[in-house]
């Protein structure tokens, strides 16, 4: 497990309409390799739609979304996706879930078990490989989801409000875990959230999506130093200043 490099993700002149309703109009966006980028915005502004476009589940009507000079498709091995509620396969154990990606590319059982186990270790679930998902708590399920995604060693990690369904305390623990793992592995992360504190705490960049159609959006770069550490960062004056300016931006966007 080492830092992965890679090329930027480029969204160029992208437009998308669904059911005749324009959701994105001529969107341009470039996200550098290794960046932690959050996308924030109110419900219904098209956050999840944008992520589905970035993952290739939806096709833009015009323009393109590319990484390494090729259009992104869901099956791209460089792509990882963590869903809002854990989309773990309920019939597979935690370890078997983590093995799934390797199994699809034909890695032998011994090797993929070993690799999958190392990622369960990474997310702190060494002892839970035999558990079926429904026996794990919400936080643990999301950890398995994260491990399952990381096993494929993706360069681009798309996360759709992955901690949205967790209680506040678990969410903070998971945020720190995610930062630790991201710091070690160095993927590009695009993280969708509606939680301002979460966006401020995690990101290098925050993109504020306007209500559809989102031709224009506001973007703020973070000034918070890394590494960030739980209580110290969260109570830092800079954290509050940054949060305040972000709220100001969001208010501007919506009026």
């Amino acid at each position: 497990m080492k830092r992965v490099g890679g090329e930027p993700l480029i969204v160029k002149n992208m437009s998308f309409a669904y059911d005749g309703k324009e959701i994105f109009n001529n969107l341009n966006l470039e996200i550098n390799a290794g960046d932690f980028c959050s996308i924030i915005g109110p419900s219904g502004c098209g956050k999840t739609t944008l992520l589905n476009l970035l993952a290739g589940f939806l096709q833009p009507n015009t323009g393109h979304i590319r990484m390494h000079d090729r259009d992104i498709i869901p099956e791209d091995p460089l792509l990882g996706y963590v869903f809002q509620t854990s989309a773990l396969f309920p019939w597979l154990t935690a370890l078997e879930n983590a093995e799934f990606g390797l199994k699809m590319v034909g890695v032998g059982q011994k090797e993929r078990q070993k690799t999958a186990q190392s990622y369960l270790d990474l997310v702190g679930l060494s002892e839970f490989g035999d558990y079926l998902p429904h026996r794990l708590s919400g936080g643990m399920q999301q950890r398995v989801s994260l491990a399952r995604t990381l096993v494929n060693n993706p360069h681009l990690l798309l996360m759709d409000e992955p901690f949205g369904a967790l209680d506040a305390l678990t969410r903070e623990v998971m945020q720190d875990e995610l930062l630790r793992i991201w710091h070690d592995l160095g993927q590009t992360v695009i993280f969708i959230t509606h939680d301002i504190d979460e966006a401020v705490y995690l990101s290098d960049r925050i993109i504020v999506l306007n209500v559809a159609p989102n031709g224009i959006f506001t973007e703020i770069n973070s000034v918070l130093p890394r590494p960030r550490s739980g209580p110290k960062t969260r109570t830092d004056n800079m954290f509050w200043e940054y949060k305040k300016s972000l709220i100001q931006h969001i208010t501007d966007v919506h009026h």
Partner: peptide, 21 residues
């Protein structure tokens, strides 16, 4: 669940693998 199918696809499952797994 549509989410199971989507999850399998981003994990690299293609064609018959989706049916089998």
């Amino acid at each position: 669940q549509g989410s199971d199918v989507k999850a399998a696809r981003v994990l690299g499952a293609k064609g018959w693998q989706l049916y089998r797994y």
